[in-house]
Structures are given as structure tokens and as C-alpha cells.
Deep mutational scan, measured.
Amino acid sequence: HMTFVALYDYVASGETDLSFKKGERLQIVNNTEGDWALAHSLTTGRTGYIPSNYVAPSD
């Protein structure tokens, strides 16, 4: 899985969403939902949907 870094803070709007903080590292599990991606946080160990425009690929 590619690793991504959060560009902004995001507060989950539902139970299936994943909250994260700017700078948090995430792995995209499934990116077939258009503007949303299923992601796993390497920081918190949690998995949920995130807005895909809130993250960018990290080196």
C-alpha cells in the first residue's frame, strides 16, 4: 500500500469515517469510492473513510 500524509485535520462526520490530524500518516486500502478513500491510519491504527483530497502521497 502507498503511504499518504494528511494535509489538514479532518473530523469524522459518521461512524464509517476516519478522523485524523494534519501530518498523520495513512495507507489507502481502497480508492474506488471517487472523492472518498478507505484508509488505515499508521498513527492510530484505525481504519475508515477519508476525503481523498485531504491527503497527498508521502515519500
Rank of each mutant, 00 (worst) to 15 (best):
H1P: 13
M2R: 12
M2A: 10
M2Y: 12
T3Y: 14
F4Q: 04
F4Y: 14
F4M: 10
V5L: 08
V5Q: 04
A6H: 00
L7N: 04
L7Q: 07
L7P: 05
Y8H: 09
Y10T: 00
Y10C: 04
A12K: 04
A12S: 08
A12I: 03
A12P: 06
S13K: 14
E15I: 10
E15M: 10
E15F: 09
E15W: 08
T16F: 15
D17L: 10
D17N: 09
D17R: 10
D17C: 13
D17V: 07
L18Y: 04
L18D: 01
S19K: 04
F20E: 00
F20V: 11
G23S: 02
G23N: 04
G23F: 03
G23I: 03
E24D: 11
E24V: 00
E24Q: 02
L26M: 07
L26Y: 01
Q27I: 15
Q27R: 12
I28F: 07
I28H: 02
V29N: 07
V29G: 05
N30P: 07
N30Q: 13
N30T: 14
N31W: 15
N31A: 12
N31P: 12
T32Q: 10
T32N: 10
T32C: 13
T32W: 15
E33A: 12
G34R: 07
D35L: 12
W36C: 10
W36T: 06
A37S: 11
A37K: 13
A37C: 15
A37D: 03
L38K: 04
A39C: 04
A39H: 00
H40K: 13
H40T: 15
S41N: 12
S41M: 02
S41V: 02
L42G: 02
T43R: 07
T44S: 09
T44L: 02
T44Y: 02
T44N: 05
G45S: 03
G45P: 00
G45C: 07
G45M: 04
G45Q: 05
R46V: 06
R46L: 13
T47N: 06
T47K: 07
T47A: 06
T47V: 10
T47Q: 07
G48W: 02
Y49W: 15
Y49E: 03
I50N: 00
I50D: 01
I50G: 00
P51Y: 03
P51F: 02
P51Q: 04
P51I: 02
S52K: 15
S52C: 15
N53T: 11
N53L: 09
Y54S: 10
Y54G: 06
Y54W: 07
Y54M: 12
V55L: 11
V55M: 07
A56M: 11
A56V: 14
P57I: 12
S58F: 15
D59R: 07
D59L: 13
D59G: 12
